[in-house]
Design a protein around this nucleic acid. Structure first.
Length: 435
RNA sequence: GUGGGUAUAGCUCAGUCGGUAGAGCGCUGGAUUGUGGUUCCAGUUGUCGCGGGUUCGAUUCCCGUUACUCACCCCA
């Protein structure tokens, strides 16, 4: 494969970190998406669709200027004088829509879900791509703590509904804005004298986001991080009470959870409740976080809306697919394969296929005028339940051959009866054959 | 962005201690003039990722590069 863009023989391929999803694979995606949608609807959420492109300022201000996402991962560009960015995450755009449509004034509580591609220019790895898909929920207007726990339950229900059971829930509280500032100051006080012993990455974090030092994997940072003050000690009474109530609600929902005071997330907008769900699937490697979210009580106001508490999460669909494993049953509707031999038969096949489809029966026509043997082979490979054979004999008799591929049985069916005959067997009601 | 590994047929991969390549799957045809999933036979597919170097000769060794992949960073 020549990879020189200047070479005339250079093959065009998908952009680095962006993947094609072929139909067999897409069927698995449909399953994930439909479980997510129906679960979200079960909790009263409605779908929100926002543009994939937003003003760059939205992300810079909401996600945080010094976060890696904003600093080096965004696909930003200028067009007709506008500074635009292809969305790296979904929460900021949803909050923008919430404010823009004055939703706060129309209803006290709003539940939205979204599903779609996000873009971050990171170095690709397993479970991490430059175009990736997230499904998320956002809830506005309820300060919690009960809805915090319920949101985690929703996410867990989606994952379990997809057969992913080896999961751990990690929770933490970042406190409200004041708390976070106090904690930041405390961490600086703790780490600054130790700067010389820290890893290079962590010395950089000291300036940018000292909270991140806490979950560093570098052994050099471990000791210093372990000795650092815990955010839970810095929480004010209201934060502490809120967090305890979230945990109590999780207990009531029978959701086991691990309190992890070192859990911090890379986006600046979080306040109070923070959570991650990790899947234990071995193939996920370092990308085991399948769902992440938290409360962001200040974003709506920051966008010029009324002070409105909010909480949300996002799940990474690629990672969920990996966690589900290879044996995801991709179901295909039972269908009819129409094999026609000879031009007149092909014309008849076309007509009958059209009739089948009008009757809701999926079918495909093999109009290659190939040998029956070869067409039957294709019929098998296609996963069809029936093969409708039309040749000279059938045309002269006015009756077609209907073959049940699995049972190896076949019948002669009068031309006019073919659609009703198959409707009872391969129609929408009977289309659960796993293939 | 940093470090490691990999790159051979449509797919999965073997191989050449340097003499320009194979298997399985798939696909096509036949055994079966119109009956498939098993079997048997035959056929089909490659600029051995790309560029350069060493060499009489490089798919093989060396360097670079690109892509993929794993770890870090970061995050879903």
């Amino acid at each position: 494969m020549p990879n020189h863009p200047t070479s005339p023989a250079a093959k065009l391929r998908a952009v680095r970190g962006m993947n094609d999803i072929l139909p067999d694979e897409a069927r698995k995606w449909h399953r994930v998406e439909s479980v997510f949608r129906s679960t979200a609807e079960l909790y009263g959420y409605g779908e929100l669709r926002t543009p994939i492109i937003e003003d760059t300022a939205l992300f810079v201000r909401q996600v945080g200027e010094t976060t890696d996402v904003v600093e080096k991962e965004m696909y930003s560009f200028e067009r007709h004088g506008d500074q635009l960015t292809v969305r790296p995450e979904g929460t900021a755009g949803a909050a923008r829509a919430y404010v823009e449509h004055g939703v706060a004034a129309k209803e006290p509580i709003t539940r939205w879900y979204y599903l779609g591609p996000m873009f971050r220019g990171e170095r690709p790895a397993k479970g991490r791509y430059r175009q990736f898909y997230q499904a998320g929920c956002e809830l506005y207007g309820d300060p919690g703590p009960v809805c915090d726990a319920e949101m985690i339950e929703l996410a867990m229900r989606v994952l379990r509904g997809l057969g992913i059971n080896a999961l751990t829930v990690h929770v933490n509280s970042l406190g409200s804005a004041g708390t976070r500032e106090r904690y930041r100051a405390a961490l600086l006080q703790h780490f600054t004298p130790l700067a010389a012993e820290l890893s290079e990455d962590s010395r950089r974090r000291l300036e940018k986001n000292p909270l991140r030092i806490l979950d560093s994997k570098d052994p050099k940072d471990r000791a210093a991080a372990a000795a650092a003050p815990s955010i839970l000690e810095v929480l004010d009474d209201a934060d502490r009470e809120h967090f305890a109530a979230v945990r109590a609600a999780l207990d009531a929902l029978h959701i086991e959870h691990i309190v992890d005071p070192k859990l911090v997330r890379g986006l600046d907008y979080y306040t109070r409740t923070l959570f991650e769900i990790k899947a234990e699937a071995a193939d996920l490697g370092a990308q085991s976080t399948v769902c992440g979210g938290g409360r962001y009580d200040e974003m709506v106001e920051g966008l010029g809306g009324p002070k409105t508490p909010a909480i949300g999460f996002a799940m990474g669909l690629e990672r969920i697919l990996v966690a589900m494993g290879a044996d995801v049953a991709a179901t295909r509707p039972a269908s009819v394969y129409v094999a026609a031999m000879g031009r007149p038969a092909i014309a008849a096949a076309l007509e009958i296929a059209s009739g089948l489809r009008s009757g809701g029966i999926p079918c495909e026509v093999d109009a290659r005028d190939a040998k029956l043997k070869s067409m039957l082979k294709r019929a098998d490979a296609s996963g069809a339940a029936y093969c409708l054979i039309i040749g000279e004999d059938e045309l002269s008799r006015g009756a077609f051959t209907v073959k049940d591929l699995a049972a190896r049985a076949q019948w002669e069916v009068a031309r006019a009866e073919v659609v009703p005959f198959l409707a009872g067997r391969a129609g929408p009601a009977a289309s659960e054959a796993p293939r």
